[in-house]
Design a protein around this nucleic acid. Structure first.
Lengths: 168, 168
DNA sequence: ATAAACTTTCAGAAAGTTTTGAAAGTTCGG
DNA sequence: CCGAACTTTCAAAACTTTCTGAAAGTTTAT
């Protein structure tokens, strides 16, 4: 398979994967493109490679920068901005985990906390079913969250070490 | 806060969370409703509680059954089907992980495998950047996948034990 | 065999999300 | 301060996904 074809295939696959993880297709594709490019790219180059508009490119590159997955690179004597992706895949997953934790897990914790203060007799089976479920979810997610936090803070070797241990 | 209000709040939060994880909002809401209900519910009851159509209810309940998160419950002498959710939250997350692994990780492995067989001189920096990235992703995802598989197969206590260890 | 009680399907409508592209904004050298 | 080179914004359009509800299908009792 030719490089061009392989690249295209990978970019598409990454875009599809992104979609089912709640990340928009184009954002995932821009990320994939930058990941596999040896050099930093300009807006113009991204537009051309992916056949997308300037506005779309700008918006998605900006989001990737917000997520800490892409950085601007300035070149002496040039006006244009160049973009490079973080190439270390561990860092990439760590960043994503961090971002999503903030955007998704934190709000749910807030709701769980609020919602479990339901009033009424705990012997009522409907109240009991509700409270029990909420508490179980809270216990589980708190544990999962702490684990995630540990992983996020940990350095790469530690991360690998933990995975290794888990795998026995 | 009244039970009705709490329930509604939780159902909505769960629905929103689902959305950002690529699970459709209604499916997540039906799941939430069944999770917090003391008794099994009929299609009719789900329709009424969530204000959704018969077709929509049927489709989403069916998908939840496919995912192994909900079961049919038949009652002697009754024609209607009753639905109950798996209440053990560990099992719920395990099932979801299993499902998504099959639908999302497996296809990406296939692509990575295909795509890394790119032809051309490995000293070309573009080919090198591409192949290096693909290999890194493959190594990482394979490890993550094995860990996931181990977790899926493991029983609940083992799962908790592992989490505990990770948390130190 | 029929009818009642249910469940499933599916085409079109509605809702939600993403993309475009032109216009507005910014920055910098001279 | 001007104009060229770029970046950002945003309303409208295109696309995607989800939902509705009526019709078709299935099952069971008699």
């Amino acid at each position: 398979m030719k490089l061009t074809e392989s690249r295209e295939k990978f970019i598409n696959a990454w875009g599809t994967l992104g979609t089912s993880w709640g990340i928009n297709r184009t954002m995932a594709q821009v990320h994939a493109l930058l990941l596999i490019s040896a050099d930093a790219l300009t807006t113009e180059e991204i537009m051309e490679e992916l056949n997308i508009s300037r506005g779309n490119t700008n918006m998605n590159v900006r989001t990737l920068i917000d997520w800490g997955l892409v950085q601007k690179e300035l070149r002496a004597g040039e006006r244009k901005e160049y973009f490079v992706a973080e190439k270390d895949i561990y860092k990439v997953f760590k960043q994503i985990a961090k971002e999503r934790r903030k955007r998704e897990l934190e709000p749910i914790f807030k709701v769980l906390d609020e919602v479990k203060k339901v009033d009424g007799d705990k012997r009522d089976k409907n109240i009991k079913a509700f409270v029990d479920t909420i508490e179980q979810i809270e216990r589980f997610t708190t544990k999962a969250d702490r684990t995630l936090e540990t992983l996020i803070k940990a350095d790469e070797n530690w991360l690998m070490g933990s995975f290794m241990k888990l795998m026995k």
